[in-house]
Amino acid sequence: MATVRIIITLKPGILDAAGQAVRQGLHALGYEQAGEVRVGRYVEITVPDGLPPEGIHQMCERFLANPLIEQWRFEGLDASSMAASRPRARRPRPEGRPSGRNTDQRGLH
């Protein structure tokens, strides 16, 4: 089994109200050097060895992330580190997602 570590964040340019609040807190504690803060989610999933990265991308695209507003990257499928952040060819839309979701593939998908 392999443990995949997935990081999901809001896309650049999307308002991150939680990040802004955290930045305020850091400043309140005196960490004035804290610049922009982006808050995301971290997900660990164990999967069978040999699972292709596409399988993780599908989990992210259909459920773990919302492709309209979020991007993701992951590591742990093989020896490479955080190498999954790459532009991909557009896939057919998964069941249950509106077509508009996959039109914007900028970022780290």
């Binding site: 809001l10 999307i14 308002l15 991150d16 109200a17 939680a18 309209l68 507003i69 508009g100």
Partner: peptide
Amino acid sequence: GAMLRNHVQ
């Protein structure tokens, strides 16, 4: 569409 956190935090 999608929902983000309220801009007013």
